[in-house]
Amino acid sequence: MGGAGSGIMAHMLSSGRLRALLEVSRTGSISAAAKKLQLTPSAVSHQISTLERELETKLIERGTRGVWLTAAGGRLAEYSESIADLMERAEQETRELGGGERGTLSLGFFASAGLHLVPTALSTFMAERPRVDLNLIPGQPHELLPRLLSTELDVAVVFDYSAAAPSAVTHGRTSSVAYHPLLVDPHFLAVPPGYRQRASGPVRIADLASEQWIATEGMDNEVALVDRVCAAEGYAPNVRCRTDYYDITLGMVSAGLGFALIPALSLGPVAERRRVPLRRLSTPHPSARHIRAATRGDNPNPLVPAFLTHLHNTASRIREEVERLIAAVDSASAG
């Protein structure tokens, strides 16, 4: 008993030898198994003899009518089939994970990006990789970047109002965060019904000092864009309502309750654009959002570069849509 136990512990069973036993079980002959395995019959016999010696158990019987498995050999062949299936699945899944065909992509994005940019990119990405799992987390940029740095996210779609990419610092050191430019998202001035512009072209924020505003809440320690552009013109805006929901903002503007600044990505369907007149704005303060995809330089997930390709392609198409929108707004302002 002790010798058999120590023999089993001393030898890890070879998958090649188990495969030889399995093929003998399947084909009923050593020569047929050898042909299937592209080995010589003597090599297959040697594999099985080695198994028998390692296990100190007879696995096959030989006779004039061929070979057949003993009870122990038959049971081991059943295990061998399960092991072969498991090894095949392990190899396939490992290759798929390494090649970006499987796995999990964790993506964070701000609200406006979730209207068109992110869903469209994900749609084409998932069409190519239907077995990939997604973990989608909406949030503000100042909320998403720490989650990227903590490895909770693979990609964070963020924005700021600077043409220069921000730096990311964690635990007192600069982290290897890469920023991938996607598009510049201009803000338009949504004007209430009955508004009469003094002159054609962009509306000067300085001319709206006495008007009511519908503004956003702002984010982190940064005040809302309306507050900043008005401050650049020397006045504090008269804000009637603050909301981060642009459908509410558009509704209030269409009801004549005030002016608002709306980013192109948040304008929604064409019906919404027709309901609220839009104008270009003139201000010395930066008023366009620079949208970027942030990734970690040390992230080995092969799904990241694959998704970035789809994100860049979608952003390129949106840039063309924004250019057409700008042309339409300019045409309406000139009229």
Rank of each mutant, 00 (worst) to 15 (best):
A231K: 09
Y245S: 14
A271W: 00
A232H: 06
P193V: 12
N238K: 14
A271R: 07
A199Q: 09
R273C: 12
G234C: 03
L257N: 10
T243L: 11
C241K: 14
R279Y: 11
L257R: 15
G251P: 01
A264S: 13
L208D: 10
Y235R: 06
L265H: 05
E217K: 12
Q197R: 10
V184N: 10
I262W: 06
E217R: 15
N221P: 04
D244N: 15
D247E: 15
R198Q: 15
P269F: 01
I214W: 01
V191F: 06
V239N: 10
L189I: 07
I214R: 03
F188E: 06
V253S: 10
C230M: 08
G258K: 10
L225E: 02
D244H: 11
Q212I: 01
D185K: 07
G234L: 02
I205T: 00
M219G: 12
R275F: 07
Y179G: 10
Q212V: 08
V191I: 13
A264V: 01
V184F: 05
L182S: 11
G218V: 00
E272N: 14
V177H: 00
E211R: 15
R242P: 13
E211L: 03
V184S: 13
L267H: 07
E211V: 04
V270Y: 09
V239S: 08
M252I: 01
G201A: 01
A255C: 04
V226R: 01
S200D: 12
A231V: 10
S176L: 13
M252R: 11
Y235H: 13
V253K: 02
Y179F: 15
S254A: 15
A236Q: 14
A236C: 07
P277S: 09
N221C: 05
G256A: 06
V203W: 08
A271C: 02
S175K: 07
E211T: 09
A199T: 12
A264D: 02
V184W: 02
V253H: 03
V229F: 03
G234V: 05
D207Q: 05
A209M: 02
G201V: 05
A190N: 03
I248Y: 11
P193R: 13
V223E: 06
L182H: 09
R242C: 11
D227P: 00
I205L: 05
V270T: 15
F259K: 11
Q212M: 12
T216Y: 12
Y235D: 10
I214V: 14
V253N: 07
S200K: 14
G251Y: 07
V229S: 02
G194P: 00
S200L: 04
F259R: 08
R228F: 04
G234E: 00
V177T: 14
G268F: 01
S175E: 15
N238I: 07
R228I: 02
R275D: 00
S200A: 15
Q197G: 13
G258M: 11
I205P: 09
P269I: 09
P193Q: 09
F188L: 07
V229Y: 05
A255F: 11
